[in-house]
Design a protein around this nucleic acid. Structure first.
Lengths: 244, 244
DNA sequence: TGTACATCAGTGAACGCGCGTTCACTGATGTAC
DNA sequence: TGTACATCAGTGAACGCGCGTTCACTGATGTAC
């Protein structure tokens, strides 16, 4: 009976611990949705779970560690939303432009559904919090999803040449190494093109989410699509929109 | 001797009040620079000025009002930095592309010099704070500076036609009214082009300021220029950069 | 110019709140023989 | 299967802190006659 499966938790204690850890991060996420990152409180989490505030310290070492967990989860959720949307688009036979639009829309939907989590990672830094090294992997997931579309577009001949992207590469050597080196000519600027899209996507979503389009634009969804179409065309990719 | 100038403060009390009000907002701004918007504290401001915390209430009604003052000041400072840069460029005989690049660089410099003030207005919303109506005028100043460049570019024949900006206008009727109605054909899309630039500028600066380019790009200033060049060319404006 | 009263700035104590974190403790679960 | 000991989860009180805001007050400045 024992030792049948030693990767899964066996004892009652281990089961309870796994479950409570999840309950704590779930409660923290709900907290976050109501109140914003800087007001996240361990005591409030404990209160919601009906336990003493000190008990939470059996599961997370500090408020900062809890924040780190939430940040990593959020980056992962965003990255996964992007990847899943891209996968669906690929399965439906979409070209690179359609794939990228699908990814953008999926990320925007996620952000609108989880505004405070979005703010946690892409908004103002939380005062006094220092992100540890563990966050950089998950943080790059969305950027890599962008890159996949761009690389496929280039490979499929769907990426037009653009005049304004020459000159030395600006991408960090560490990043280049992570993606397997600078692509061969004439594709040396693919990392930069990807990054431009990445910045445009995050920038447009944050701008909307933080309220700056309020009373400025009538249809946010259409405005977003158009913004993304412009960003795409500026790196040589054409999106399947009405006007394009 | 009296009544020589009745707009300026006359009595000792009025002079003292004007000076202390300024001292309070200055101290608050210093506070903000150190600690971030959500941690701004009336008590800390009072402490810095060596007065009782209750005394501050003679000058501002509440913490929220102090925040509002800072927000308005910040929007104004950003708008003024943009306008001043544009004025200097005009005086130097620059074309529209060069003017826009000058504005972008000036706004970025301002943001790098005042990161927490930037975050106050363009970062995550401060939890629990509701912006009053008084902020919308100053908030639009930067956008209007963008529009001025774009309109001048169109008037000067420096704005190329672009394929991807057709379809119904998305700009809010209130905004259209504020800028004197929809421009005549073929310039109906100028408000939208301006807005695209505005979003691209704010998005790129926030992305950099909030730390997402850390270890991703080697030269932030050059990367920013290039991002702006791409945004400009996507609405038909060409910037005077090496590669363009 | 002088006096009497009204206005205002600033004080210090207090209210009531919430926070992160520590600590000695009780009682339940797991383990080795 | 039963017992003895070690491990761990959870409690409740406490420490020390900071916050926004109110209130009755003292004393200085301004104003009207």
């Amino acid at each position: 009976m024992p030792d049948l499966d030693d990767s899964a938790p066996r004892t009652a204690r281990q089961i309870a611990r796994a479950e409570l850890t999840k309950a704590i991060t779930d409660a923290a996420r709900r907290q976050l949705a109501e109140v914003g990152p800087s007001a996240l409180s361990l005591r409030a989490v404990a209160r919601e779970l009906g336990m003493a505030s000190s008990a939470v310290y059996r599961y997370v070492a500090s408020r900062d560690e809890l924040l780190t967990i939430l940040i990593i989860d959020t980056y992962d959720a965003i990255g996964e939303a992007a990847e899943a949307a891209d996968d669906r688009a690929i399965a439906a036979g979409a070209d690179a432009g359609a794939r990228w639009l699908a990814v953008c829309r999926a990320v925007r939907s996620w952000a609108l559904a989880h505004p405070n989590e979005w703010a946690l990672v892409y908004g103002s830094p939380v005062p006094g919090y220092q992100a540890p090294q563990d966050t950089v992997g998950p943080a790059s997931r969305l950027g890599l999803a962008m890159a996949r579309v761009v690389v496929d577009a280039a490979a499929g001949g769907e990426l037009a040449a653009v005049a304004s992207l020459p000159a030395p590469t600006l991408v960090d050597p560490g990043v280049l190494q992570a993606i397997g080196g600078l692509p061969d000519a004439p594709h040396e600027d693919l990392p930069e093109r990807s990054m431009l899209l990445w910045i445009a996507l995050v920038g447009a979503i944050s701008f909307e989410l933080f309220g700056h389009l309020h009373n400025v634009i009538t249809d946010h969804a259409v405005g977003f699509d158009r913004q993304m179409a412009v960003a795409a065309s500026s790196i040589g990719l054409t999106l399947p929109l009405d006007g394009a």
